[in-house]
Write a protein that binds this DNA or RNA. Structure first.
Lengths: 248, 248
DNA sequence: ATCGTACTCTGTACTATATACAACGTACGA
DNA sequence: TCGTACGTTGTATATAGTACAGAGTACGAT
């Protein structure tokens, strides 16, 4: 084995941009990276990120588990590819209207994406690797901030801030949904089981404000609407916060 | 075995409030829930949440792995207990001064908590279970919003919004730090490896705004200070957003 | 004082994960 | 035509959470 023969692991960036050097020797590939990624997304969409195992994925593609490692160096890289593919195909509202509506649309598009692909919210780093999908998305979303008198750095800061809010909100929504499903208990059962203890322990003397506010919040939105409400409230606050910068 | 003999698994709430019914039969317990939780926190602080395994934790306590299941029903509950313990001991700035300073202090306290216990940011649900620590924290933090003319529901919304921002920011900071350490590459090495490809692929024609803004942002804050900057920027925006509600 | 039993503790075992490694076979380039 | 680079796969390893059953302990009832 000479030094020139060594083929280092393909970098993540090469994979993202599908820039791996082509080889012609050996048997034909039975799959493409895109097929693997698409199957992985389908699986994660249907059954969640924890159900996305190399075995299950290989099975759904009709291959042996280890075969996938020919296409993708490991699971980490696979998830990065899945995310970028999502960004690439993402549905986006056209950028138009006053700035507040434009940014609200960006937020809602992202929220819809994360709600449709729950796993993405927990998998996405705040600054995903620079794949084609991410770049396209970044470019498009920056348009919504163009011409508002912000510096370039402020544009980046503002967008990152908005997107971080959306991702957190989507993650919270998904989690509260998952918890409700997992606990298989109805609200009534839960209260029957835990109410007595809580009543004893949630001392109004000790937690006066918490009890008062907590009760009000609980009554206002029955748990089901909580997450959507939090998103709506948070979005208005976030846009108000950016307004202070933009309309300065 | 009669029905009356059955001892159902202790609910999480009972554990959180240390309200498990005492038993006197059998050998003395060699540990307490608090000791287990404290050891788990120490381990997670030192080596991260992924290093917190039942085996390692048991070893650090000088017990066999399965012994821990006498104290805690499972790992999920353990993490919940760890979080609540953290909240209980959390250092908090006194609530005083104008509202903006009070809320900024709440944010900074939470940020410091999550930066000191990196695992907590990723483990914490947005609405952690109602343990004593969580209640104490909620009560204290609501004080910072008292007397501002908000309704009870708005107080809850506003606090949740602020805390969600802080958690997301801390998570991002931790993640970018972890990535930098994991990749063991210096920035220079990274650019040498990936620069050529990026230069080819990041077409200025196709991504004009992205390239311009991305470059400006990259130059403005070298990656190391990025996260802290994002927190500072985001905090101001979040407080501005709440100001629109409070000073309405 | 004795004895049953509830309870702690522990060793073993099961299932499932990601993935390293080596064997096998294919088909291109020389 | 043949060597070799490479796709594919079976086997194997390390590590996870935790179910289960056996062994020993000490309180409470008798």
């Amino acid at each position: 084995m000479t030094a020139a023969t060594e083929t280092p692991k393909p970098h993540l960036l090469e994979l993202l941009w599908r820039a791996a050097p082509e080889t012609s020797r050996g048997p034909r590939k039975g799959l493409t990276v895109d097929e693997v990624v698409a199957a992985a997304i389908a699986l994660a969409d249907a059954e969640g990120l924890e159900a996305l195992t190399v075995r299950r994925l290989a099975q759904s593609l009709g291959k042996a588990p280890m075969t996938l490692y020919t296409y993708v160096p490991g699971k980490t890289e696979l998830v990065a590819l899945m995310l970028d593919a999502l960004f690439e195909r993402m549905e986006a509202t056209a950028v138009e209207g006053p700035w507040r509506e434009r940014l609200a649309a960006v937020a809602r598009d992202n929220y819809a994406l994360y709600r449709a692909h729950v796993w993405a919210a927990s998998a996405a780093p705040s600054r995903p690797p620079l794949g084609p999908g991410q770049c396209t998305k970044y470019e498009r979303e920056l348009q919504a901030l163009e011409g508002l008198g912000l510096t370039d750095v402020e544009m980046d800061d503002a967008l990152a801030h908005l997107l971080a809010f959306v991702r957190a909100a989507a993650q919270d929504a998904a989690q509260s949904e998952a918890e409700r499903e997992a606990s298989a208990q109805s609200d009534q059962e839960w209260w029957e089981a835990n109410g007595p203890l809580l009543a004893k322990v949630l001392d109004v003397e000790k937690f006066p404000t918490a009890v008062r506010v907590g009760r009000a919040a609980g009554e206002a939105h029955d748990a089901a609407y909580n997450a959507e409400h939090a998103f709506a409230f948070g979005l208005e606050r976030t846009l108000d916060g950016l307004a202070a910068l933009i309309e300065r």
